[in-house]
Amino acid sequence: MSDKKNYFFVDTLIHSKRSIITILRNPFIFIPNLIISLFFLLVYEGGLSGISQLPAFEGANYLAFILPVSIVSAAIGGAGGAGQALVNDLETGYFSRLLLTPSSRLAIVLGPIIAGMLQLLIQTILILIIAYLLGLEVAAGFGGILVVLLLTLGWGLAFAGYSVGIALRTKNAQSAQAGTFIFFPLIFLSTTFVPYELIEAGWLKVATVINPTTYLFEAMRSVFIDGWEFWPLAKGFLVIALLCAVTITFSAVSASKAVSAD
């Protein structure tokens, strides 16, 4: 049995290594995504920072307010890459080639996810460094940065589960691509630019409350702006845990169907 476990770790390592090589040799996989995220940060900070004078912001720095949007958008891109990588393997037929080896089935699907998580981690750190250079101050200190990274990873994992599930179910690039459009409502139907109190439209208020991203934004902002506060973090981590449970189950079911065709 320990032998089997051993194989699983080695297999996971092999598949992850290959996925990382693929990402590194295709800079177009991560560069556009990183640029869009930095674009969000720089343009919104540059154009909208004046509105943080409004009382609803309670004196918060707009850079700290908008930074989570940039981080979350980068995370979606990084995590979505895992699904894209699998679709690519399915379309070229390399996936079948891997299924024909004695490799652990789980490791075949985990490889691209782990590579996607690493990509996401590095992107987030890069964005944080740039925000620091722009004058970011983190109220919760260095520990707060670690919490933000943890939230981002959790969010990324949830989205990776979603993108992998879609990829394995549809087995086609167009459908998988279409699946990533969920990006827009997730990012923008939320407290993206202004706090909840400043949102005008009633429907957008409702969407904001339903959208799980809102709780992620709020958790990160609490760390950046207010320091250590229990409820925003508790809600943030709870929402992420629930999301992960749903999407990872979805991807596991899709994966088990994809690896053993009836």
């Binding site: 290959r18 693929t22 037929g93 390399y94 080639r97």
Partner: peptide
């Protein structure tokens, strides 16, 4: 799987490697 070799018609390779 350990004992067979398979070259499928639609088997692909990762073109990046």
């Amino acid at each position: 799987r350990r004992n067979i070799g398979v070259a499928l018609q639609e088997t692909g390779i990762d073109s990046v490697l």
